[in-house]
């Protein structure tokens, strides 16, 4: 999406949903859902649309873990690192995931095919280790499950 299109998207959203300060998080979610990430180049447009300072937008954008400032891979695998998944062997699975998917935790693979990210709890704590694969929850992750995920993300 070009930057003019992105600005049109922002203006259209604000026209529909309002320009109050409290609209900032929903707007950022909307931009990210549409484009995949929130480019720093869009910060002035967002600031203008909501009548806030660019510093303010930058502060919010960098505070929340969900917002991306760079494009992610075509597939996103979020693997839970929290205590309940650790109790079920999550630390070992983290290492296997990095190896099978060919990317370190928190990184995007060089070919842009997959991003592996930590997540702190998906609320599936009795059936871990758990992951979200492109928004789909997967429980009881083991080496075989990671092989299936590796095939899925090759597509």
């Amino acid at each position: 999406m070009g930057s003019d299109e992105a600005k049109a998207l922002i203006d259209a959203w604000v026209g529909r949903e309002g320009a109050g300060r409290d609209r900032l998080l929903p707007l950022l979610h909307n931009v990210q859902d549409a484009i995949g990430y929130i480019d720093d180049a869009l910060v002035p447009a967002i600031a203008a649309a909501l009548n806030l300072s660019r510093a303010d937008i930058h502060g919010v954008l960098t505070f929340y873990h969900d917002y991306r400032r760079q494009p992610a891979g075509r597939h996103i695998v979020k693997l839970c690192r929290a205590e309940s998944c650790q109790a079920r062997g999550g630390a070992a699975i983290e290492a296997i995931a990095a190896e099978r998917l060919g990317v370190a935790m928190g990184e995007t693979r060089r070919d842009g095919q997959v991003t592996l990210e930590p997540v702190y709890c998906l609320g599936l704590c009795a059936i871990g280790p758990n992951a979200m694969v492109d928004g789909r929850p997967v429980a009881r992750i083991d080496a075989a499950a990671l092989d299936r995920i590796a095939i899925e993300i090759a597509a």
């Binding site: 109050g20 300060r21 409290d22 609209r23 900032l24 998080l25 929903p26 950022l28 979610h29 909501l50 502060g59 919010v60 505070f63 929340y64 873990h65 969900d66 917002y67 997540v119 702190y120």
Partner: peptide
């Protein structure tokens, strides 16, 4: 209102700031 991946927003005053569109 959907959160944005900040655990601390479970703290009630951080949550209120987050709804208001600020850093949590």
């Amino acid at each position: 209102r959907a959160g944005a991946g900040a655990y601390v927003c479970g703290e009630e005053t951080a949550l209120l700031d987050s709804i208001e569109g600020k850093r949590g």
